[in-house]
Amino acid sequence: MWKYEKKLQYPVKVSTCNPTLAKYLMEQYGGADGELAAALRYLNQRYTIPEKVIGLLTDIGTEEFAHLEMIATMIYKLTKDATPQQLRDAGLSEHYASHDSALYYENAAGVPFTAAYIQAKGDPIADLYEDIAAEEKARATYQWLIDLSDDPDLNDSLRFLREREVVHSQRFREAVEILKEERDRKKIF
C-alpha cells in the first residue's frame, strides 16, 4: 500500500527552452540505469531478501518513483510547448511520429524500456551489489546530464537527484555490511 503526496520531492524549474535536453533526460526515464529500472528492481527484490533489509528496499524503491516523477516533469516542461519543427531540431522527430509529445519509457536513443535491464538473482549479496552498481551508474548518468546541460535551474534539480544516488549507494553498502554480520566481530575476538 502506498500513500501519495501531490507534490514533487524537490522543485523542478526549467529556465531555458531547450527540447534537446528532454531527449537526454529520457535516459533517466526509461533507460537501463534510470529511475523506472531502479524502482522496479528494488521493490521486486524485497520478497527474497533477509527481513533486515526489506524496509530499506521499500524506502529506496518508493523514492525512485518520486525521482521518476521529477524527471517526467522536466521532460514534460521541455516538450509541452515545442512545435513539431522544434522537436525535429531536437532529434525527437522519431518520438513525435509515434507519440506526439507524450512521455514514453525509452532511453535517450529511443530504445524502449525492457525488464531485461533488471536482475533478480535471489542471492542477497549478488542483488545488493547490483543495487550498488545501479546507484553508481545512475550517479554517473546525472553527471553526464549536468555536463550536457547549461540550464542552471535544471542542473540544480539534477544535482539533488545525483546526491540522492550517493546516499542510496551508501545505504546499500551498509545493507551488505548488515548481511555480512561482521561489524562487531572485532570486539569478540
Binding site: Q143, I146, D147, R164, V166
Partner: peptide, 20 residues
C-alpha cells in the same frame, strides 16, 4: 538538508561539469 539532498555534510558532494 532538504536543499542538499542529504542530512549529513559527510555525504554531501556538489557536482560541477569539470570540463566547463
Amino acid at each position: 538538508a532538504l536543499k542538499c539532498g542529504t542530512l549529513w555534510p559527510t555525504f554531501y558532494d556538489f557536482y560541477e561539469n569539470p570540463y566547463k
